[in-house]
Write a protein that binds this DNA or RNA. Structure first.
Lengths: 154, 154
DNA sequence: TCAAATTAGTTAGCATAGCTAACTATATTC
DNA sequence: GAATATAGTTAGCTATGCTAACTAATTTGA
């Protein structure tokens, strides 16, 4: 939920930026998406795998929350990853209902390769920027990341 | 396809920005996505409808190319939009194989309402930025939009 | 001119990914 | 120890992506 704070900006200006941001994000991801198809795994699986590689093993429920998806959906995503031997599932020591999910080395490798491909593609797009422009983009990312971190609760 | 130009940046710096950009775009859209569910139409339909509202009537093939999707996929998306009375389909005067697809006024209204909801949500997220920070984000968007415009050819 | 080739779209059938509802199995609470 | 709550799964729906194979219309060219 967005913070409801008294805004110091004229609403229309904020709206315009919001709209452009949305559109840019859509178009950017549409470009990048095609780079992922060669892995043979869909976006939901890659995203979940990415989380596992980035932040270690998680239970199914934790994954579902992190990916903003319902448990049955994540259950199937994980089943697919397991079928492809990209994750392993082990019992939780303290709670027999829970299942800990870990990326396998194959999973880590696949993710790294995919990430490399995506990043290379985007990086190629960014090489036309000057050093100064790149720094400007970086600053904006700092801001965005801050916004996206707030309200991780939802 | 990205332009292949001699890069003036150290590769690692560009890669890092590319990676952060990718991640920020994913998380941003994941947030916004939930705002769209209330329309009762899925993302592919909303995206196609958006194009129709933004740039007027199109044939099915044009829509498929613009949305980077194969014709059968777009065929079904358009069928869904038609079922919901968000678009109308008319015969092409010059080529009886072609079908011109137009947004209806209901379609325009639905899209505008959805856009308003999305933008409001994002704008709420952005209100915590200062005027200066917002301006910085704006500059970065100028750069991004430039990059995304190049190679619209694909 | 009319047969062949191309082009626009559809249909059928498969996979992934989202959901809810209803279930099983384990933990927790009283 | 019985009731309740929690973690996951299963079943079954929809939407969105694909390819292959089809129909219908247009264009080519002998």
């Amino acid at each position: 939920m967005p913070k409801v704070k008294p805004t110091s900006q004229p609403r229309s200006a904020v709206d315009a930026v919001a709209d452009r941001l949305h559109s840019a994000a859509i178009h950017l991801l549409r470009r990048v998406r095609n780079q992922d198809t060669v892995t043979g795994e869909g976006p939901a699986r890659l995203s979940a795998l990415s989380l596992l590689v980035f932040s270690g093993s998680k239970t199914l429920g934790e994954l579902a929350v992190a990916e903003q998806v319902k448990p049955p959906t994540m259950s199937r995503v994980v089943a697919g990853l397991k079928r492809s031997r990209l994750v392993e599932i082990t019992a939780d020591a303290h709670d027999a209902r829970r299942r800990q999910i870990h990326a396998t080395s194959k999973g880590v490798a696949l993710l790294r390769a995919g990430r490399k491909r995506r990043v290379s593609y985007l990086a190629d797009c960014l090489t036309c920027l000057s050093k100064q422009e790149l720094a400007r983009l970086c600053e904006a990312l700092d801001l965005l990341e801050g916004i996206l971190r707030d309200g991780d609760d939802r």
